[in-house]
């Protein structure tokens, strides 16, 4: 352990910086593809980097009536939470850095922290738009957490019935033992339904159209982010970029954790490289279908409609998925 501290710091820094860079690259791809789908040219791929640099250089305005420490603290907490997510998720062929210290339940909590931080920041901003946005974020959080947790816990439970000895909530175990290999046809249908539910939860988790209700530019002028500027906004922007990658990586770890290298009988550094590339492509596919296509293909929903959507159909789908997994176990 003693000798490993230096290496651990290096690894940690690589994951953090790599995660941030990756998040911004995916944001660039997102913007470019969305633009092309709308018949626009779109910004260059590196535009998100320019955006962050520019925001960092801008004045950081704190509204007069805001509670400054909460207002300034929220973006830091948000970015810290999503960055620590990266330590618990399997990235490519590599096991999570802190795999032994936290599991799926921690990941669920860490996913909720940025939303809560934004909510606190929104209330602390003392702006009517931000307050409305914060209230909406609260409703959103209560709506999509339920199907999210059902899906994650069902998968872990089903795995626990197969591998009673393993710590099934650990993401490395989940990623190493994809359920597809174990379940029968009923379970497979159940898994597809759970994947579907998570694909719908993803844009809500990331506050993207049709669920960008807490930010809703045309309604509440950016809502939660209305009063944020400069460095604080840059931190939220980065947090959003990293969270997109983390959420997609979580879906990949749960449902498509397969590597390509084994199948191609590769080994050594080349195998790692191929697996990382394959992982990036998988993340891109998830981002494409659950974020990019969705955000250009739908209108923004209203908060009550979004809440109803998550409480009834999406929760319903994930419950059916869970029941199918249970039946699969019984059968």
């Amino acid at each position: 352990m003693t000798g490993g501290i230096g290496a651990a710091i290096w690894q940690g820094a690589t994951v953090l910086i790599g995660g941030a860079l990756l998040g911004l690259v995916y944001k660039g791809i997102d913007r470019k593809l969305a633009a092309r789908m709308q018949a626009r040219i779109g910004p260059p791929l590196r535009q998100p980097f320019f955006d962050v640099v520019k925001l960092l250089a801008k004045e950081n305005v704190v509204p007069d009536h805001a509670i400054a420490w909460l207002f300034n603290g929220a973006p830091v907490v948000s970015l810290a939470a999503v960055s620590s997510l990266l330590f618990y998720l399997p990235l490519g062929g590599f096991a999570p850095l802190l795999g032994g210290h936290g599991d799926l339940v921690l990941v669920i909590y860490l996913l909720a922290v940025p939303a809560i931080a934004m909510m606190v920041g929104g209330f602390a901003a003392a702006s009517p738009y931000a307050s409305v946005g914060a209230q909406r974020e609260m409703v959103m959080l209560m709506s999509y957490e339920f199907p999210l947790v059902i899906a994650l816990v069902s998968i872990a439970w089903r795995l626990s019935t197969i591998l009673p000895e393993a710590s099934v909530f650990s993401l490395s175990v989940l990623a190493a033992n994809p359920l597809w290999d174990w379940v029968g046809p009923l379970g497979a249908v159940g898994l597809v339904l759970l994947a579907l539910a998570l694909l719908v939860v993803t844009p809500a988790e990331l506050s993207k159209i049709p669920f960008d209700i807490p930010e809703a530019e045309t309604e509440i002028a950016g809502g939660l982010l209305a009063e944020y500027s400069g460095r604080n906004l840059a931190l939220f922007y980065l947090a959003d970029a990293v969270k997109t990658v983390a959420m997609a990586a979580l879906l990949v770890a749960l449902f498509f954790p397969y590597g390509l290298a084994d199948r191609l009988w590769l080994s050594g550094p080349l195998a790692g490289l191929v697996d990382v590339a394959f992982f990036l492509i998988k993340v891109l596919v998830v981002v494409f279908f659950s974020v990019i296509v969705v955000r250009v293909g739908f209108a923004r929903l209203k908060i009550d409609q979004a809440a109803r959507l998550f409480w009834i159909p999406v929760t319903g789908i994930s419950l059916v998925g869970m029941v199918l997994l249970i039946l699969d176990r019984v059968a």
Binding site: M37, Q38, A39, R40, I209, P210, D212, A216, E217, T218, V296, G297, F298, A299, R300
Partner: peptide, 16 residues
């Protein structure tokens, strides 16, 4: 109207 609904794709489509 599409933009007000957050449906920018329709905005770009109609304006195109």
């Amino acid at each position: 109207a599409a933009h007000e609904l957050g449906f920018d794709t329709l905005l770009h489509l109609t304006w195109k």
